[in-house]
Simulated scan of single mutants.
Amino acid sequence: MAKEQNYLDILADLQKKQFKPIYYLMGEEPYFIDVIANYIENNVLTEAEKGFNLTVVYGTDTDISDIVNTAKRYPMMSDYQVVIVREAQSVKSIDELVYYLRKPLTSTILVFCHKHGVLDRRKKLAAEIQKIGVLFDSKRLRDYQLPQFIENYLKQKSIDIDSKASAMMAEYVGADLNRMVSELDKLIITLPKGQNRITPTQIELNIGISKDFNNFELLDAIINKNVVKANRIIKYFAENPKSNPLVMTLSTLFGFFSNLMLVYYSPVQTEQGIAAHLGLRLSWQARDYLRAKSKYTGTEVLQIIDDIRYCDARSKGVENSSVSDGELLRELIYKILH
């Protein structure tokens, strides 16, 4: 089976003008679908060519026969015509597209944007698309993939970012990629003239995230069993609950310790081995897990996971009617560190 392309692979081919007759863009993450479709819409044709050769339709307003008839037209005064079908998940009888794909017009670039769902890969349509074009599954990124996404996005704009700054943005914004890109673009605009590196200080000044009091720093304190630093951070969290909601902190801690539990079962106890076992893209991302493994036993990690779950339940009112989120977090961190 051929390696599935990611959105950067597809964009790289498009930039080389290596066009396919069909791009079926589907999945739960709308950001990647929009990036690819917008690149095709904005870059394949010149402004003069777009008037006759660019067609954008919506699945709710058209049907497969109209789409195919449009795709069969020849371009006017251009090498290509581009047909983009947005909201493709609403196109009825889409399986009939198979007949067009068996002999597509190579001068037509047909793009389907199917958000919040996927084609059934067992059907003939998926197989036909893969034979001659691109069938792209736009998957939501997992938390550990966000720093790499941030770095890749900024690299395309010739901007570097400090690893701590990248982790701060990942924690603060989360997996909403459209919002992430918007926040990163703001940071780029605020960079002083001649500076091409985003730092934690710049994020603190322009985004409002404290570079010293955040979940990234709290996790670092817990990993290193730095009681003083951890208590300083949770005191700040208690005093600023709107900026540091308990649910985000618990999510960060649960994700880390759940992965740490898996580390004990990694067959190769090196950075590279643990990164492969956890599905981390970069080996250095495993360093924190190795440090934590030296501080916490497997039995302790199991108890910590149970404590985090219990804290989460109490924050939602289970066996708790009056204890604040700040006090709940203080109790949890005490249990973890002692």
Rank of each mutant, 00 (worst) to 15 (best):
K3V: 14
A12Q: 11
K17A: 10
Q18V: 13
P21G: 09
E29Q: 11
A37F: 06
V44R: 02
V44C: 01
F52D: 11
F52L: 15
L54W: 05
T55E: 12
V57K: 10
Y58V: 07
G59A: 04
T62D: 10
V68D: 03
V68N: 05
A71N: 02
P75W: 08
M77F: 06
M77H: 00
V82I: 12
V82G: 08
V83T: 13
I94Q: 09
L97N: 03
R102C: 02
L105H: 04
L110H: 00
F112L: 06
R121D: 15
R122W: 09
K123R: 15
L125T: 03
I129C: 00
F136N: 01
S138Y: 06
S138L: 03
K139N: 13
D143S: 12
L146H: 05
P147K: 07
I150K: 05
E151K: 12
Y153F: 12
Q156E: 06
K157V: 02
D162Q: 08
L177M: 09
M180H: 00
S182V: 06
L184T: 15
K186D: 02
K186Y: 01
L187P: 02
P192Y: 00
Q195V: 12
N206K: 04
G208V: 06
D212G: 04
N214E: 04
N215G: 15
A221N: 13
I222W: 07
I223L: 14
K225C: 08
V227C: 02
K229V: 00
A230I: 07
N231T: 01
E239Y: 04
P241E: 05
K242R: 15
N244W: 04
P245I: 09
V247P: 00
L253V: 01
F254P: 08
M261Y: 14
M261K: 14
L262G: 10
V263N: 04
S266C: 11
P267C: 05
Q269G: 01
Q269W: 03
T270I: 07
T270C: 05
A275H: 05
S283Y: 09
A286W: 07
R287Q: 07
R291N: 13
K293G: 00
S294A: 13
T297A: 07
G298Y: 11
T299I: 14
I305S: 05
I308N: 11
R309I: 05
D312T: 08
A313E: 08
S322R: 11
S324P: 09
S324K: 06
E327I: 15
L329E: 12
E331N: 13
E331K: 09
L332R: 08
